[in-house]
Design a protein around this nucleic acid. Structure first.
Lengths: 234, 234
DNA sequence: GGAAAAAACTGACTTTATACAGTTATTTTT
DNA sequence: AAAAATAACTGTATAAAGTCAGTTTTTTCC
């Protein structure tokens, strides 16, 4: 009856994937306002969508593509999250205490980004509380994911962190145990907080142990259960 | 004219300190609603205010005291942030996709916490968009701080991380270069992602280098400029 | 005020992970 | 299709940080 429920292991995943439901919370007038004050841009693979330190002028809605949101400083990079299509990005700059972008966004694949005027977005948040409640939920969902990754990267060692990110890629991004990795080994390092060499060695080790299969950029997860155990025990 | 502005170094600090202005954005009726649906509890030093995994039933307003917000798992702890008085805590559980608390909160000093019914809080967010806009800003401010700490803990080494946290304690929490540290060395470890022994060794090193002075729990920062340089160069 | 407990500290050792310096393979460019 | 550039990989050396086992100091509590 009074079963002890241990909270589930702190997850690691920081991929943000929700539906476009925010848009449907707007009135027709508000939708029109967004439409009139936004423009869709196409970015090629590898391009920078926005850069940390620049003035925050837009909220980004990723209509298509895969991007990374990251911090860079003195050739140290940290990928805060990956985002697939149908996600709002740049929400952190709604807070206008400091109206500079807190991170850089760059594409991994050809992408389509709707750039929404940030003042309009702020205005809508102030006037439509159903909408802003939804945005609060999005922010909190993201934060929860960041916490998980924060824990993973600071408390687990290489094995656990790599397992974390492989599971995350399979479950959240590619929704399949077999996928073509658009990230370089160096990006995998920025995502897991380890050096490129360590990523390579660790992945080879996983391969030798029969946990995954790698052919160049193509990755297959073979033993999910064991990867999960590795993730859990760090 | 076209001066190149380098974005300032990624800061580390994750102490959350704002005014009680959220309350003043409510109407009289709404204030009353909060008052009627909240209760103030007193916690002694070292007590747990709420525990990760429990059902999220309240938003916490810290009226007085100093607390840590942290994750714990398998004797690995990570302090997500410290909070001084006049801060809202537990906002992460407004997102009700998973209505469990995502972190544990415990006190460092005797504290007074106003516990606000979470349903009421959600209701107010949904009905008062000025209020929810303010909460969005609070969330974003916090997130920016978490990002900074995330970068610090994953990309800097011990020197940098310790310098970060010492500067943070002085600037944000105690607002003085001399302070009595209520955190144990072990807590400093949980805050900086290092072992207790490393904290001790590193602090001794800082003392030997004339950067700080320590007498037991009392700490004085002697050379802020050099600490900042250490923080910056990791 | 003194015993017990907890926290702070120390030194030796081990593990973990990065750095460096190359080589090989794969893309991209012309 | 060849050349150049980039990315992937390998082995060795080195540094960074943690663990362990113990001592000293400080705090707590009867």
């Amino acid at each position: 009856m009074n079963q002890i429920i241990e909270p589930k292991g702190i997850s690691h995943c920081s991929v943000y994937d929700t539906e476009q439901s925010w848009y449907n919370l707007l009135t027709e007038d508000e939708k029109l306002l967004i439409d009139e004050n936004s423009v869709t841009l196409v970015f090629k693979k590898g391009e920078t969508v926005c850069k940390r330190g620049a003035f925050a002028s837009h909220i980004y809605f990723l209509e298509e593509g895969l991007v990374k949101v990251y911090l860079e400083e003195r050739n140290k990079n940290l990928i805060l999250m990956l985002s697939t299509k149908n996600n709002l990005l740049g929400l952190a700059s709604i807070y206008n205490g400091n109206n500079k972008l807190p991170y850089t966004i760059a594409t991994y694949t050809n992408s389509r980004v709707r750039m929404i005027d940030i003042q309009i977005f702020r205005q809508l948040l102030k006037q439509n509380s159903e909408f802003s409640f939804h945005i609060i939920n999005l922010l909190n969902e993201k934060t929860a994911q960041i916490y998980g990754r924060f824990f993973s990267l600071t408390q687990k060692q290489l094995h656990g962190r790599l397992a974390d990110i492989l599971l995350c890629l399979a479950n959240r991004i590619f929704k399949s145990n077999t996928f073509e990795l658009p990230l370089s080994r160096s990006d995998m390092g920025d995502l897991t907080g380890m050096s490129t060499e360590s990523v390579i060695r660790m992945m080879k080790e996983f391969k030798d142990d029969g946990l995954i299969d790698i052919h160049c950029k193509s990755i297959e997860l073979l033993d999910i259960a064991r990867l999960e155990r590795i993730s859990e025990f760090g």
